[in-house]
Design a protein around this nucleic acid. Structure first.
Lengths: 221, 221
DNA sequence: TTCTTTCAGTGACAATGTCACGTATGGTAT
DNA sequence: ATACCATACGTGACATTGTCACTGAAAGAA
């Protein structure tokens, strides 16, 4: 039962017996279908979420429906946004949705808060997670400000390929566009170019990576 | 002497007598001219910096010299980047420069680390500061991804006006461009437009805001 | 099959970024 | 004052990216 807690929470072994039991007793586990919105800009956060299985996407969106993906949360990872937002009720203006059918454990807000206040290791963990994601977002901003679309697209293809551990990506231009915060047409145009350059091979809902060396080189300019 | 510590460090009154004394004893105070680079991407951080007087700009830059400002640190504010980077040696890829002649106090790295480990309030403060700046950066990213230049420029003019508490900004198009992460020509073009719309009045190195209501409305779209 | 939905392709145009200049302004040296 | 110089600004041409309004193509449902 608590194997995944050990795997997800580096501070697990530093908790007292009581703290561990408290966690186990209050932990809620939910299943969500792919595409469920776990958290939407401005709503209350229920607690700290741990992805037992599946995957989630953290993103920001504008009123007119544009989006950009900040980062993803994979199995056994903790959603620190929920951790952070409860600390000082800072509203980050972000949203989170599942990208696959997912099983998610929730540590209730007040429980995590208690652990965070009592236990140094928990607080350390919280800080490190926030700092790490902060670092991720700054990297993203860098990409956005300093790189051209070709670089960003090749980078996206590589990381999508790593995500699904395959050179064949079952993904639409639309999804890529949302990840990158651009328009589908732009993605289509560039992918077309990539295809004539023999970097990828395209078909409906599918992109096959032919030359990942070249893409990698490109993405790092 | 330690008045500014009280003002800058919310946890000051929660420190023990010994801790306070330790801080005072090890505190280093330096003066820097306007334009000094306090921290550059990848260098070691000396410690936690507190701006006693003056102002600093936190930014990221690319190899080919493009920049974008993340946020500013004003008098009596603490540079939490240095705080964060020492926690886990996360490299944020940022740089910091003074924007005015500044007096800066530095809490040595190991001292802050010690306080942070020992004292719950210090750790809380660190976390809150990181979360707050994180929130700022996400806001910036939102602006960058979802807003057009007109909106971002009007927003910049408003915030510059608030910074110097005047409707007359002594600032060049170049500086504004660097803040916004765009090119000077783009700023020049738009300012020209703003001028013909009677929003601002331009002269060399100076921008006078004529209609801040309109600018404000614009910046919030 | 036919219908329908989703995905992709395309041309025209707008906004922004880049480049290569030219021009204006204010300070400094003589 | 005059000439000179550095810095700031203006501008046109063009490249890249974003937006819009479509059309066409593929895959699943009726």
């Amino acid at each position: 039962m608590n194997d995944f807690l050990k795997a997800s929470l580096p501070f697990w072994s530093k908790l007292t017996q009581n703290e561990q039991q408290l966690l186990i007793d209050t932990l809620q586990i939910h299943k969500y279908d792919r595409g469920t919105i776990l958290y939407h800009d401005g709503s209350e956060c229920a607690g700290v979420e741990i992805i037992k299985s599946g995957r989630a996407r953290v993103y920001i969106s504008s009123k007119d429906g544009k989006e950009i993906t900040l980062y993803r949360i994979l199995a056994n990872e903790v959603c620190m946004m929920s951790a952070a937002c409860m600390i000082k009720n800072i509203n980050f203006g972000i949203s989170i949705e599942t990208e696959a059918d997912s099983e998610i454990a929730i540590i209730p807000r007040n429980i995590y808060q208690k652990l965070n206040d009592e236990n140094m290791f928990v607080k350390n963990f919280t800080l490190e997670m926030v700092a790490e994601k902060f670092s991720d977002v700054i990297w993203l901003l860098e990409q956005f400000v300093f790189s051209n679309m070709g670089q960003r697209l090749s980078c996206e293809l590589i990381s999508q390929s790593e995500l699904c551990e395959s050179k064949i990506l079952n993904i639409t231009h639309e999804k890529i566009a949302v990840d990158l915060g651009t328009a589908r047409e732009v993605v289509t145009r560039l992918l077309k170019q990539f295809q004539t350059d023999n970097l990828v091979s395209l078909s409906r809902g599918k992109i096959e990576i032919l030359d990942d060396t070249a893409l990698r080189k490109m993405s790092k300019w």
